[in-house]
């Protein structure tokens, strides 16, 4: 059975210009111990999806409908105190900018120890020991000294590792990492990703890794969810998504990348047009205004097609060998 199963999730936000649907009927699932990558443009609903799973959507936002089964229970039906227990204990989250989630006036050690005390009921001395142990695990040098440092005394990479230490200190079954390496340099990013992989092998936690970096996904994730305009565009294992994409947006995204293994002079092939505006969503396929394969029926709501072996695509034409329509540019 899947560890996490999101069904028909719909999350909206009230804005000055009307209500927007940030996540619009999203369904996906994740098995225990697996890594799922979520990719998509800015505003496609990646963070809102993870905040919905954590039930951290506040006004003006609202989870309108859907079910989020975690370990057999619908999180959306839990009482607040039950959900508090799930958060941090069973599901942990790390954010893009560790400074926003670390408390600047508490030492790194105090913050990890607090999580451990709260969720694992350890006493002060034990909690501190656990904090040092966790910092050692994420390879902070001389952890018994650095445990008393404040966040600002850590570099960006160290802070992100401290966040990972904190998130993993309660042995969660699911770790949601929202752009955990975006603020980091590539050489440090490689260290952090390697560390996450290693800790996952050790603890068996499932991971949802949200990123805009397709390279990071290809290197770390077994499965990939591509989002567009608040919903799934395509879902599959890394090989299906990167080597046999069936949805024109995924295809366009991969084709537009400057790649180190492509001829250096090759002209890039951008996706034309602009990302969707959630205030003015097309009636059918969200990608239709930018799609070179658009037909009339694309302006009607698009069902998900099961392409077999777990490969899903939301596109009217995903089973065809596609040829651009007319003189679309």
């Amino acid at each position: 059975m899947a560890l996490l199963e999101v069904r028909n999730l719909r999350t909206t936000f009230k804005t000055e210009d009307g209500t927007i649907t940030a996540v619009n009927g999203l369904s996906f699932s994740l098995d225990a111990g697996q890594t799922l990558g979520i990719v998509g443009e800015s505003g496609s609903g990646k963070s809102v999806t993870s905040l919905s799973i954590m039930r951290l959507i506040d006004r003006p936002g609202r989870i309108e409908s859907g079910e989020i089964f975690f370990d057999g229970r619908d999180l959306l039906k839990l009482r607040d105190e039950e959900m508090r227990h799930v958060r941090g204990h069973r599901i942990a989250m790390i954010f893009q900018d560790p400074m926003t989630s670390l408390n600047p006036v508490l030492t790194i050690g105090e913050q990890i120890a607090e999580v451990v005390r709260l969720h694992l009921g350890r006493n002060h001395r034990e909690a501190r020991e656990t904090a040092i142990e966790m910092l050692r695990k994420v390879r902070i040098p001389s952890p018994e000294k650095r445990v008393d440092d404040y966040p600002h005394q850590f570099s960006g990479g160290m802070r992100q590792r401290a966040m990972i230490a904190m998130a993993l200190s309660c042995n969660p079954q699911l770790l949601i990492a929202d752009e955990p390496t975006t603020a980091l340099d590539v050489t440090i990013q490689a260290q952090v990703l390697e560390l996450m992989n290693e800790l996952q092998r050790e603890t068996g936690a499932a991971i949802i890794l949200i990123t805009h970096d397709l390279g990071v996904v290809a290197e770390t994730c077994k499965d990939v969810l591509v989002m567009y305009g608040g919903n799934m565009a395509e879902y599959g294992d890394a090989k299906q998504i990167f080597n046999e994409p069936r949805m024109p947006y995924t295809q366009g995204l991969l084709a537009s990348l400057p790649r180190l293994d492509a001829p250096a002079n090759a002209r890039l092939k951008p996706i034309p047009g602009q990302p969707p505006n959630l205030h003015r969503m097309p009636p059918g396929c969200a990608f239709a205004p930018r799609c070179t394969y658009r037909l009339e029926r694309c302006d009607t709501p698009v069902p998900v097609t099961d392409l077999g072996n777990g490969h899903l695509a939301r596109c009217w034409r995903c089973t065809e060998a596609l040829v651009p329509v007319g003189a679309a540019q």
Binding site: S155, G157, M158, D185, V186, T187, I188, Q189, A190, Q191, L193, E194, D213, L214, G215, V216, V217, A218, E219, T220, A238, K239, F242, N243, L254, L257, R259, L260, D261
Partner: peptide, 26 residues
């Protein structure tokens, strides 16, 4: 090291490149 640290967006190429993981912070 910089060139080796760039993740490649192609699972078929995973493991074909030698990765020199730099230790330490900037």
């Amino acid at each position: 090291a910089l060139l080796a640290a760039i993740p490649v967006p192609d699972p078929a190429l995973q493991g074909t490149q030698k990765r020199v993981l730099l230790s330490g912070d900037v």
